[in-house]
């Protein structure tokens, strides 16, 4: 080890220590607990059950079943990844110029991302209120229907997706605005000289140049959507029925409400595995595209 590398390790040691204590150790502990009927109030009362928690998960032994929550999670993830990426990119394209109006627009969109999710979720509950909410008032002023946004199983998930897009799109937009600054202007000009219209320029020049940023945005959106919890907990508590009961919410429900810490840990491990596999697959896909 060289003298320089020793200094390097010393400098990263605090960050590694924090990462180890708050991320790596809890992850290892969670996997260990998933093999137990765990009583965290009194650990001496925990019993080793091996893979039973995982078998219960596969058998769909709980209500709602693992498979039902997985399907609900998949709907949310797909909506957020597709919707969030497209919306973030579209807004970034609109606000790519560095004039005052664009800067104001960027700030306005990004502001939502830095607001606390609990507070804004409660505000959106009011906006979604089917009798007094501003959204239904707007719909009815346009002779639209009155929608029970959070009380109708058909609308509860779309309502949460809309809120989550409002909250998270600012971050995706900033990624793309950063990416757009690195897009070669010369290539765009060359395309226009060759007769490309705006859409063709975007599709054949800008988007391929943005590919690394798109991949990054998709990976981050996937991870965030898989682990989403706050908006589901505050806005619907997984209802009506189990229509918005996601894996993240079930981890909380099983651990803190039903006191099935071992099963919750098994769910958390599976959630971690799904997240890792998806992130890895997206990276592989990205590399293949680059080749």
């Amino acid at each position: 080890m060289t003298r320089d590398s020793r200094w390097a390790y010393l400098f990263i040691a605090p960050a590694v220590a924090v990462f180890a204590v708050f991320t790596i150790l809890p992850s290892i502990a969670t996997f260990g607990i998933s093999l137990f009927d765990w009583n965290w109030l009194n650990m001496s009362r925990s019993e080793m059950v091996g893979a039973q928690n995982y078998l219960d998960m596969i058998k769909g032994a709980t209500t709602p079943s693992f498979w039902s929550t997985l399907a609900t999670t998949a709907v949310f993830v797909i909506s957020m990844v597709a919707g969030g990426t497209a919306l973030g990119l579209a807004i970034a394209m609109l606000l790519r110029k560095s004039n005052r109006i664009s800067m104001f627009g960027r700030s306005a969109v990004f502001l939502a991302f830095v607001t606390p999710q609990v507070a804004t979720s409660i505000a959106w509950i009011w906006m979604y209120n089917d009798r007094f909410g501003v959204l239904n008032a707007l719909l009815q002023s346009l002779n639209g229907p009155r929608i029970d946004w959070l009380g109708d199983p058909a609308f509860a998930m779309p309502a949460i997706v809309i809120y989550s897009l409002w909250h998270g799109t600012g971050f995706t937009m900033m990624i793309f605005i950063g990416g757009l600054t690195s897009v070669s202007k010369e290539l765009g000009e060359a395309a226009r000289v060759d007769g490309a219209n705006r859409w063709q320029e975007f599709w054949h020049v800008t988007l391929p140049e943005l590919r690394p940023f798109v991949i990054f945005a998709v990976v981050i959106a996937t991870i965030n959507a898989l682990q989403a919890f706050t908006q589901f907990f505050v806005m619907t508590s997984g209802g009506p029925g189990h229509s918005t009961s996601t894996l993240g919410l079930q981890v909380y429900q099983q651990a803190f409400v039903s006191h099935h810490a071992g099963y919750a840990a098994a769910l958390a491990v599976v959630l971690f595995a799904i997240t890792a596999v998806m992130a890895f697959a997206q990276q592989r896909f990205s590399r293949r595209l680059e080749q």
Partner: peptide
């Protein structure tokens, strides 16, 4: 904080502080 991390942190805090 995600529910996943909350569970893990609770457990680790328990193990460490109990120790």
């Amino acid at each position: 904080m995600s529910a996943f991390r909350l569970v893990g942190l609770t457990v680790v805090a328990g193990l460490v502080l109990t120790a």
